[in-house]
Amino acid sequence: GGGDDTSGEGSSEGSDSGSEASSDIEAQTWRFVTEEVKGQVQYEYAAEFAKRMKEKSDGKITIEPYEYGGLGSETDQVELLQNGGVEMAVMSPGFTGNMVKEGQIFALHFLFPDSVEKTQEILNTSEALNKDLVERYEEYSITPLSFWTEGATQWTSSSPLEKPSDFENFKMRTQTSPLIIKSYEAYGAEPTPMSWSELYTALDRGTVEGQENPIFFIGDASFNEVQDHMTISNHNNYVAMTTVNTEWYNGLPDNVKTLVDETVEEMQDWVYDEQKEQNEKWLEKIKNDEEHPTEVVELTEEQRAAFKELALPVRDFYKKEVSTVDGAILEKLQKEIEDVTAE
């Protein structure tokens, strides 16, 4: 059950945070939108979150998780949260980049270490993110309560991608973010912005030759069926944020707020395990798929370094052209990352 592994901190009643604390909670329903569908990490996160909150509040707090779909684009969902139409959302900073410019920091390649575990540790502890970046978001009525990784992003392709020259004239599907486009131009690729709903067919027909995503998403969307190679490049992490509407959150009674904070914290370990399990499961599946064989290659440290060298100047572009605080958050984050990786 949800209460079993809680530390119980913040609850004056002791380890069993159940009935007494929740006795003065009003019955209420919150809406929790995600950018993914049932079975995928974000949605499962919201469903688990809902389950735990229900148990902790003795059924007083009902959270309805929403799959991606009818509520418009990812950007629309962001605005829905900002306007208080929904209380909670999982969002990718990539979809707020047109507003909170600093959020594009997560598009930079080879910023986080190649270990997903270390990356998660940084996301949990970084002051640059959990304080400075959160403040940027709060200007827009969005409060990120936590940052977590859905796994490292990998490349799939029709021809091997092991060194930067493999990207020469390579048609790479990207999202429309200028920083992502810059990142692939830095390798000499031809970034082709495209909606993911057209991506399967485009890969199949060769309109684009490659794409990037966490492994579970590659498998769930069957991109491996139409690609011959997968490069474990760990060039980036797909980072998501658990967010709440700022005014709504600040107006919550203390006991309810405590329940939320506590659950958010527990969920960090849960989602780390969830994405790990999903990514590992799909990696095995993709490797063992004999009908659609995919050659999986993991980059060596030297190979990664060759890409990283080309990716570094994009950080200057971020500092000069994207950041509104001259890259102060990036510089602080880089120091924090150095500290963690030096351990």
Binding site: G72, S73, D76, E79, L80, N83, G84, G85, S195, S197, E198
Partner: peptide, 20 residues
């Protein structure tokens, strides 16, 4: 009543912005 109809107006734009 808590949902601002303004957000529905945003959908008017979202609906037709698909590249497809």
């Amino acid at each position: 009543p808590n949902l601002d109809p303004m957000l529905m107006m945003q959908q008017l734009q979202t609906g037709i912005e698909s590249y497809v």
